[in-house]
């Protein structure tokens, strides 16, 4: 049904109905934002990636051919953009453009959960310490609850490799959270 809805919406958009894009954007924008947010760890970068992804969808939807689901296609874009942003950070860090210990904070953050703020910060720090590929699989499994097969289609990696990466991610999270206890 979801796939049929998406098929209908994409076709409507390609036939000139701009409101179909609005519907698609509204349907997926939270998933896009939260994935980027877990990967990048702050609102500013997640906001930028979310906007970029929606622009790419708008511009490239005409090339989408339903060989995968729309969700998988969008997910590929957001996960690649998030990884690119992390790479860009590494490049900047390498060229010393950014302070290595810089902690990006944003007064306009959309999370208002003051009561859990300290706990949320601790969890965020743990996630930030995971190597990029382990963080990616941890986010996709743990937050987005995707199957290995779905992740394999999105990332192009083998299921076996993904399992190994996830195992190491879990192990590292355990070690880091054990230290704090």
């Amino acid at each position: 049904m979801v796939q049929e809805d998406d098929f209908y919406l994409v076709n409507e958009f390609l036939n000139g109905d701009e409101s179909a894009f609005n519907t698609i954007a509204k349907k997926y924008q939270k998933k896009i934002y939260w994935h980027a947010r877990q990967m990048l760890g702050n609102h500013l970068d997640a906001d930028e990636v979310t906007q970029e992804v929606l622009i790419v969808i708008y511009k490239k939807l005409k090339n989408f051919n339903f060989r995968s689901s729309l969700f998988t296609w969008i997910y590929k874009i957001v996960t690649t953009r998030s990884l690119n942003e992390l790479r860009r950070r590494n490049v900047k860090k390498f060229f010393s453009v950014e302070d290595e210990n810089l902690n990006i904070t944003d007064g306009r953050d959309i999370i208002n959960d003051i009561s859990n703020k300290e706990r949320i910060n601790e969890l965020k720090k743990t996630l930030d310490k995971l190597p990029t590929k382990q963080r990616q699989i941890f986010v996709m499994r743990n937050f987005d609850e995707l199957s290995y097969e779905e992740i394999s289609v999105i990332t192009g990696k083998s299921v076996g490799g993904l399992k190994a990466n996830y195992f190491h991610a879990l192990k590292k999270v355990m070690e880091m959270t054990n230290e704090k206890e």
Binding site: N22, Y33, Q38, I55, Y58, I111, N116, L123, L127, N142
Partner: peptide
């Protein structure tokens, strides 16, 4: 870790996203 994806997020952000795009 799912606390990181809090339900208590500002919905105004999502409402203002499309005009910015």
């Amino acid at each position: 870790f799912r606390y990181l994806e809090t339900e208590n997020a500002d919905e105004r952000y999502f409402a203002s996203l499309l005009p910015k795009v």
